[in-house]
Design a protein around this nucleic acid. Structure first.
Length: 478
DNA sequence: CCTGGAGTTGTCCTA
DNA sequence: TTAGGACAACTCCAG
């Protein structure tokens, strides 16, 4: 007779190393590893199509690490977990915390219910450098400005030791699992739209480690400047791995800072560390302002005169705005499930300020298309770019997609994702509609035939946006 | 409680 | 060509 098994509930911690819940579960005896697809009650934030693709392959990788013993289920954990406990004679349950408001609410209920039936439940932190309730102002309230949040976190120091550990090698209880258990979740769409995702990403813990190693080897040495240039390989692209918990931010933080010291490039690694803390800031915001996903954080934006327009939104989504950098970004998103951060700001600003479309439309589209779709990051970032969020860009700060193209030398990037413009030289590729006819003809560009003319004028749309903002202010004063 | 200083990522116009 | 200031006040935060 074996010892009583523990249940390890995997969620956004799909890894064996640096996994506090798994470490704790493994030391207490044999374990039953379980994943539950639980997003059915999270409308309107059910997993997007790109996230589903990633999840499928990440679970597949984890399952292999667990000798195909990962139990995969779908439904409401409030029912499933107690049923499993009863069926397998489980007394102890372990998980790592999630922070989406609907999940943490559900987990609190579940924990209470399990404890009432005499089960032991242990939850741990596996995914935040600083959990929201550990980085508050002296008066106990949460930060709304990034820099003080960052300083506070730095001055207190990050607790790395409680998360970092060797890979667990848990003893798994025998289970008879169907071979098609993952396919049964139906995470992969029938349309083969995601085939190119594999070109840039390998979901799973091993893929995450490789991405980090590659970034530390090549990308980080020029991070501070290089991260703004979409044509360079100076960003880590770790975001989807972090979101699904295939790697602990603690490990990323530790290794990048150590390398910075070793190579004397502290400035680069500090800037990278700052970006990791931005994620923490977003989590804190969402935790303390759970309505952030639906409502303007700055309520004075509630009456903003958004100009809902389906054709404009559609042009933005499909990368047919006539602004090459915007179109390149939107097509990168669609084709690869990823978009460079500099370009995210440019396309975000363009949607919200030049097209006057509600930021929630942008957030929704990103949610569906991004492999790294993360409720806290996505929401906080869209509110930031729209000007209604915490520490937001002032409303008059409107990105000019052409200036941005030039400043960050995006010609190569544009050629990659907008092939119909590839033959244009650097001088004309940023603004094809004012290129001489001869250049366009030579490059095979026929405006409004194989590439659109700009769908809005930059100057007029900018003035319109500023006008809308003035209008809003006037209304709020009245 | 008061107060001073500061706040991710920009653009445009003018002198 | 280039550098500096305007753009908008407002809220946040720490001392």
């Amino acid at each position: 007779m074996t010892a009583q098994p523990s249940l390890m509930w995997f969620r956004q911690d799909l890894r064996l190393r640096d996994n506090p819940a798994l470490t704790a579960a493994a030391t207490s005896g044999p374990i039953l590893p379980v994943y539950i697809l639980d997003d059915t009650n999270s409308a309107p934030w059910q997993l997007g199509a790109a996230s589903r693709w990633w999840l499928h392959h990440s679970l597949s990788a984890l399952d292999k690490q667990l000798e195909n013993r990962l139990m995969v289920l779908q439904g409401d954990p409030l029912e499933i977990i107690p049923a499993l406990a009863a069926k397998f004679g489980i007394r102890k349950i372990f998980w790592n915390r999630c922070y989406e408001p609907w999940r943490s609410k559900r987990d609190i209920r579940l924990k209470r219910a399990l404890k009432e039936t005499g089960l032991s439940v242990t939850s741990s932190n596996a995914s935040l450098l600083v959990e929201p309730w550990l980085n508050l102002k002296d008066d106990g309230t949460p930060y709304k400005v990034f820099t003080p949040f960052y300083r506070r976190a730095m001055s207190k120091g990050i607790d790395l030791a409680s998360v970092l550990s060797a890979a667990s090698n848990p003893k798994l209880i025998p289970a008879d699992l169907p071979a098609d258990k993952l396919d049964a979740l139906g995470l992969l769409s029938e349309v083969n739209w995601h085939s190119s995702f594999f070109e840039s990403f390998t979901p799973g813990e091993a893929g995450a480690d490789k991405k980090l190693a590659c970034f530390l080897e090549n990308g980080i040495s020029n991070y501070k400047q290089g991260r703004d240039f979409p044509g360079l390989e100076s960003v880590s692209r770790l975001s989807p791995h972090i979101h699904f918990g295939e790697i602990a931010p603690h490990r990323i933080y530790k290794e990048s800072l150590e390398l910075g010291e070793l190579r004397g490039i502290e400035s680069e690694s500090d800037h990278f560390g700052r970006e990791l803390i931005w994620r923490e800031f977003s989590y804190s915001l969402l935790h303390y302002f759970p309505s952030l996903t639906e409502s303007n954080m700055n309520r004075s934006f509630d009456g903003f005169p958004w100009q809902r327009d389906e054709p404009l939104l559609r042009a933005w989504q499909t990368g047919q705005t006539g602004y090459p950098l915007v179109d390149a970004g939107m097509r990168q998103l669609w084709q690869t499930g990823y978009m460079h951060n500099r370009v995210r700001m440019v396309v975000g600003s363009f949607l919200v300020k030049n097209l006057l479309q509600d930021w929630r439309e942008g957030a929704r589209w990103f949610w569906d298309c991004l492999l790294d779709a993360d409720l806290a990051n996505n929401t906080a970032s869209w509110q930031w770019v729209a000007g209604c969020g915490a520490d937001a860009a002032p409303y008059f700060r409107i990105f000019n997609p052409i200036s941005q193209s030039e400043k960050f030398k995006t010609a190569r990037y544009i050629r990659q994702f907008v092939p119909e413009l590839a033959q244009l030289d650097d001088k004309h590729i940023y603004e094809p509609d004012v290129a001489p006819e001869s250049k366009l003809t030579a490059a095979g560009v026929k405006l409004d035939e194989n590439y659109p003319k700009p769908i809005v004028g930059l100057k007029t749309s900018r003035e319109k946006a500023l006008g809308a903002y003035q209008q809003l202010k006037a209304r709020n004063r009245a």
